[in-house]
Amino acid sequence: MKILYFAWVKAKIGKGEEDLTPPEDVRSVQALVHWLQARGEGYAEAFADQTRIRAAVNQDHADFAAAIGPNDEIAFFPPVTGG
């Protein structure tokens, strides 16, 4: 599973992209967040306040209930501030 991080989420985790293989029971964005939180201090800090985190699945905005699979590209980032 390809996982991408942007803006301060990337800064806290210390990388912009990684390939991970979460356990099979990680089948939603929310479950992935829980699993990532346990991976280390940077992850825990990045996901501490989930109201400040947005997600995308395969480059479309997605809510935390969205289903995910091993071949998906998942991204985590703060609310966008372009324009």
């Binding site: 991204a75 980032f77 501030t81």
Partner: peptide, 13 residues
């Protein structure tokens, strides 16, 4: 512009 502001994945530092 309204949609771009809330949807397009850009972040300003």
């Amino acid at each position: 512009m309204d949609y771009l502001k809330t949807d397009a994945p850009f972040w300003k530092r």
